[in-house]
């Protein structure tokens, strides 16, 4: 086995992962952005985005995935998602009340419609994706630590 095989799974899994991981990530973004016109939304799209990074980590080992999205970046992204959601909610006070749909509704069945709902979807997707990836990274690092100690 050469050093290329040292981390992660076999060469077959790595090659397939190289093809599929970008598609999974793009599919997650599609689900998030079309959440108000078709099934999906921030929750499902966020979990799919997290799964693409989990896929990368399972195939290539933890260094390759953490190079793409480090632990500090997940914390920052999750906080950004939460703050963005709260900010959108607070901006509703410009028109009257909390969570007011203050942007123009636009035309139905188009991508740019429905006021604040796409923005909220993006915020929720950031929050869910970064949060779940942070949980996964934390559990994986703990597992390696306890196995090393035995």
């Amino acid at each position: 086995m050469s050093h290329e095989h040292g981390k992660g799974m076999s060469i077959i899994v790595k090659t397939i992962t190289r093809f599929t991981v970008g598609l999974i990530f793009l599919y997650g973004i599609y689900i998030v952005l079309h959440g108000h016109v078709s099934p999906g939304g921030g929750f499902a799209g966020g979990v799919i985005i997290a799964l693409s990074f989990v896929h990368l980590m399972l195939a290539y080992g933890k260094e390759a995935a953490l190079k793409k999205l480090s632990k500090r970046a997940t914390s920052i992204l999750e906080s950004t998602g939460a703050m963005l959601f709260l900010l959108i909610a607070l901006l509703g006070f410009t028109g009257g009340y909390f969570f007011l749909n203050f942007i123009n509704k636009g035309e139905p069945f188009k991508l740019f419609s429905a006021g604040i709902i796409p923005l909220c979807n993006i915020a929720i997707a950031l929050k869910v994706g970064a949060g779940l990836f942070a949980i996964f990274v934390a559990l994986v690092l703990l597992d390696l630590d306890s196995e090393k100690k035995e």
Binding site: G35, H36, V37, S38, P39, G40, G41, G42, N101, K105, G106, E107, P108, F109, S113, A114, G115, I116, I117, C120, N121, I124
Partner: peptide, 12 residues
């Protein structure tokens, strides 16, 4: 709301 997905308009 202008959203055609009713579940999305309910939760957000």
């Amino acid at each position: 709301t202008g959203a055609t997905n009713l579940v999305s308009s309910v939760i957000l």
